[in-house]
Write a protein that binds this DNA or RNA. Structure first.
Length: 413
RNA sequence: CGGGGUGUGGUGUAAUGGUAACACGAACGCUUUGGGAGCGUUUGUUUCGAGUUCGAGUCUCGACACCCCGACCA
C-alpha cells in the first residue's frame, strides 16, 4: 500500500477525552474513528488488523472442528420470549419495525442457533458438532468505554452440541486450550489468565479469559501459589483458592477477552432441541458456548503493546509487516530503489506500507511510523544507498542495523 | 440507570457580560531535508433552542452530545 494513497490521518495531540490508551492511540494513528459513544468505524489500517485477528480466530475454530455459518442480527421477539430473556436481558436492543412488530438486535445467538440446530438434529448420529460465526453484536450498554466496551462490536461465537455432559466436558477442555492458543497468537498470551467466574444466567460456573491491564474494568484475583485466577464474585463466595486452597491472592485489573460457558440444557429445553439416543430414549441436547470479542481483542492488544511513541503491533496482527520510509532526496535512486523494494516484497507476499510521500520531513515520517506501530521499519535514504543498504529497525527495539538490499527479503521472510 | 463534569475553527487551547484569539493542521509560494522544519500569504470557529440584557462564548432554563465515577455487564 502506498501511504500517499492510504485513507488515514494521524493526530499529534492526545485527545481531551480520556477513554483508554488503546482507543486514543488507535484513533490518533488512524485505525478507528468514533461515530458516537460506543460505536466505531474501522478505517483501512484498523480493518486490516481486525481481519488478521479474525483469521487467527477462524483458523483455530476450524481446527477445533467448528463450521462457520452466519446468523442474522435481526431476531424474532418470539424466540426471546421463549427463553424468558426478552424482559430479562438488560442490554438487549429491542426495535420496532412496520406495524409495531418487535425484533431483537442480536446480542448473542442462543435464540437463533438452538432452533437452527433442532432442524438438523434427530439422532445421536447427528452429534456432536460445533458451529460458529464472526458477526456484529449489539448490546445497549449503559456506559461505553473506548474500543474496549462498545454497543456494537464484532464477536466470534461458537456453539457446541453434545449427547452427554461428559462429551461437553471433553470439548470444553479442548476449547480452553484452543482459546489459550488464540490469545498467544494474538500476542497477549502472557497477560491472559483463565479465570473462574460465576455463570450468571447461563450456568453455575463459567470461565473467562482475562487479560491483565490497567485499562480493565474487571478485578481478578490471581493465586500467588498456583496462579489460578478467580473473579470478584467467586472471591466473595470462596475466600480461598479453589484449586490449591491458598488464601494469598494478587488483585489485578483485567479486561475480559473471551469466555466459555457450559450451557447444558438451558437453551435446548425451551426450543425442544432433543435427540434419540442409542437406547431409543429421547434426551435433550447438551450445549456449550464460546465467545471472543474481536474488536475488544484489538484494543486489548494495543493496551498490552504500546509505548510513549505509539502502538507496537505483534507481527501476527499488524496491519503491515514492514513499513518502507523513503527519505526525500535529490537523487532519483532513492525513489526508484524504494519502489523496487516495495514491489519485490509485495511479490513474495509480504504486507508492506510504503511511505512514498515527497512533501514530508524525515521526522514526521518517523513519528507517524512509530505511532502506527508496524513491526519492521525500512529506511531508504542517500546515506543507506551509499552502502547498497537499507536501515532495518524493529518497532519494539531501539537499535537498527544496515542490511544489504539483496538480503532484505530473506530477512523478512 | 444514579451522581459529576465538559461542549469554542479539522485538532489542542484562550477570551471581567463589551470587536472571538493563539498554536497545530490545511492550501499556495520560497527556503529546508535523518526524529512531527522556517518565513510569508490564505483558509476556517462559540452544539441546538428559548430567556435575561443596550450587549451573551461567558448568566438562567431546556434539549442534545461526549467524558468521568458508581451500579450494571449473556
Amino acid at each position: 500500500m502506498l501511504q500517499s494513497k492510504l485513507f488515514y490521518k494521524t493526530v499529534k495531540e492526545k485527545s481531551a477525552d480520556v477513554e483508554s490508551i488503546s482507543s486514543d492511540l488507535l484513533a490518533r494513528a488512524g485505525f478507528i474513528d468514533q461515530l458516537m459513544a460506543g460505536v466505531y468505524t474501522f478505517l483501512p489500517l484498523g480493518h486490516r488488523v481486525l481481519k488478521n485477528i479474525e483469521n487467527i480466530i477462524r483458523r483455530n475454530m476450524i481446527e477445533a472442528d467448528g463450521q462457520e455459518i452466519l446468523m442474522p442480527v435481526l431476531q424474532p421477539k418470539e424466540n426471546w420470549l421463549k427463553t424468558g430473556r426478552w424482559n430479562n436481558f438488560d442490554v438487549l436492543f429491542r426495535i420496532k419495525g412496520s406495524g409495531d412488530k418487535e425484533y431483537a438486535m442480536g446480542p448473542t445467538h442462543e435464540e437463533v442457533v438452538s432452533p437452527l440446530a433442532k432442524k438438523n438434529v434427530m439422532s445421536y448420529r447427528d452429534l456432536p458438532f460445533a458451529i460458529f460465526q464472526i458477526q456484529t453484536k449489539f448490546r445497549d450498554e449503559l456506559r461505553a468505554k473506548g474500543i474496549l466496551r462498545t454497543r456494537e462490536f464484532l464477536m466470534k461465537d461458537l456453539y457446541s452440541f453434545h449427547t452427554s455432559q461428559e462429551d461437553l466436558d471433553k470439548y470444553y477442555d479442548k476449547m480452553t486450550k484452543v482459546y489459550f492458543n488464540v490469545f498467544k497468537e494474538l500476542g497477549i498470551g502472557k497477560e491472559t489468565y483463565l479465570t473462574l467466574a460465576s455463570g450468571g444466567t447461563f450456568s453455575k460456573y463459567s470461565h473467562e479469559f482475562q487479560m491483565v491491564t490497567e485499562a480493565g474494568e474487571d478485578l481478578i484475583y490471581i493465586c500467588n501459589k498456583c496462579k489460578t485466577a478467580i473473579n470478584k464474585e467467586i472471591k466473595v463466595e470462596t475466600p480461598v483458592c479453589p484449586s490449591c486452597s491458598s488464601d494469598s491472592f494478587e488483585e489485578k485489573k483485567a479486561v475480559e477477552v473471551g469466555n466459555i460457558f457450559k450451557l447444558g440444557t438451558k437453551y435446548s429445553l425451551p426450543f425442544d432441541l432433543k435427540f434419540k439416543d442409542k437406547d431409543g430414549t429421547e434426551k435433550p441436547v447438551i450445549m456449550g458456548c464460546y465467545g471472543i470479542g474481536l474488536s475488544r481483542a484489538m484494543g486489548a492488544v494495543v493496551e498490552a503493546h504500546n509505548d510513549e511513541r505509539g502502538i507496537i503491533w505483534p507481527k501476527s496482527v499488524a496491519p503491515f509487516l514492514a513499513h518502507i520510509i523513503e527519505l526525500k532526496s535529490e537523487k532519483k535512486a532513492v525513489k526508484t530503489t524504494s519502489g523496487k523494494i516495495y514491489q519485490d516484497l509485495n511479490k513474495i507476499g509480504i504486507q508492506v506500507l510504503y511511505d512514498d510521500r515527497d512533501d514530508k520531513s524525515a521526522g514526521e515520517k518517523f513519528a507517524e511510523a512509530d505511532m502506527m506501530g508496524t513491526p519492521y521499519r525500512i529506511v531508504v535514504s542517500e546515506k543507506t544507498l551509499a552502502k547498497n543498504s537499507v536501515e532495518l529497525k524493529e518497532r519494539s527495539k531501539k537499535e537498527f542495523k544496515l542490511v544489504k538490499i539483496k538480503q532484505l527479503a530473506k530477512l523478512l521472510k
